[in-house]
């Protein structure tokens, strides 16, 4: 919809906070089968709430959502630091003087597959991607967003509610990022983990989406590619001749820049035509 939510980073953090809150406060009272869904949904809600203000501002007043969502990333970053380092509050583990998150209830966590670091949340993500792929193509709502993206005027003349479209699309975007944060809690972290602040996963998500050319299914492929880059980066850092993990981020940026440069070949196709000459052969 020509909207750019650059706040995934912050929404991811908030999703982690929301997930951890549900995992600590709600999960112990819940049946094991609904504990995980409750944590994930809470995380998604927190992510959506974090984008609510930029979304409303964009829809009602046209405030640039790019800058507003981005500024909130820094607010979210400070919020996590406050929860873990700055206060002895709810999210901090009371059993140790070392600043770390309070672990969530075991019932609200997934086990990884066998000895791998892969969690069942991957399946949920892939299913969601497939669902969204279908949804934006086949639903009324998806159609309206694509009309609005191509021409806001047309959408308005057709009686589509641009305020609702703008707000809801950004909220869904925030909820998805929040869900990602909650998946981090349900899977590897199990608590509010300030380690997430260093990974830049939210920013990487933007690159992944741009590289997939905003195609929900292609995102799965580019995401796996980027995850490979990151894991490879960690391996390089841990090797005997360490290379800083930042090389993975450099490569991500470079891949996107080159892909952008290559776009022109998609828009303007190079056509090779073979000229067939009729040569008369004299007998």
């Amino acid at each position: 919809m020509n909207l750019y939510n650059i706040g995934q980073e912050g929404q991811l953090y908030l999703g982690m906070v929301g997930g951890a809150w549900a995992g600590i406060a709600l999960a112990p009272h819940l049946n094991q089968f609904i504990a995980v869904p409750v944590v994930l949904v809470t995380g998604a809600l927190f992510g959506a709430v974090w984008v609510l203000v930029p979304a409303l501002l964009r829809a009602r007043m046209g405030t640039s959502e790019i800058v507003s969502t981005l500024l909130l990333n820094y607010v979210a970053l400070n919020l996590i630091n406050y929860f873990i380092y700055g206060s002895r509050g709810f999210f901090r583990d009371p059993s140790t003087p070392f600043p770390q998150g309070r672990p969530i209830s075991e019932s609200a966590r997934f086990d990884s597959f066998g000895t791998t670091n892969t969690y069942p949340t991957l399946i949920i993500s892939i299913m969601l991607a497939a669902f969204l792929f279908w949804f934006v193509r086949r639903s009324n709502y998806g159609y309206e967003t694509s009309v609005y993206a191509d021409s806001p005027q047309t959408a308005r003349y057709a009686g589509m509610n641009s305020i609702w479209l703008t707000t809801s699309v950004l909220l869904v975007s925030g909820a998805l990022a929040g869900l990602g944060g909650a998946m981090y809690v349900v899977g590897p972290a199990g608590k509010v983990d300030p380690g997430l602040l260093q990974t830049g996963l939210g920013y990487a998500g933007i690159v992944v989406a741009a590289l997939a050319r905003y195609n929900f299914v292609a995102v799965i492929i580019t995401a796996v590619l980027f995850a490979g880059l990151r894991v490879g980066g960690s391996a390089l850092q841990a090797s005997s001749d360490p290379v800083p993990i930042a090389i993975a981020v450099v490569l991500q940026g470079a891949v996107l820049l080159f892909a952008l440069g290559g776009e022109i070949f998609r828009r303007n196709r190079v056509v090779v035509t073979r000229v067939v000459q009729n040569v008369k052969v004299s007998v």
């Binding site: 750019y4 650059i6 790019i66 830049g200 920013y203 990487a204 933007i206 690159v207 741009a210 800083p244 930042a246 090389i247 993975a248 981020v249 450099v250 490569l251 991500q252 940026g253 470079a254 996107l256 820049l257 952008l260 440069g261 776009e263 022109i264 828009r267």
Partner: peptide, 23 residues
């Protein structure tokens, strides 16, 4: 010249610059 999306190109430069400066 290549008429790429200015917003995405700018963001790519943020990511590239952040990574390269850390490196």
């Amino acid at each position: 010249t290549l008429r790429a999306n200015q917003i995405v190109s700018g963001l790519a430069m943020v990511i590239f610059g952040t990574g390269l400066s850390q490196f």
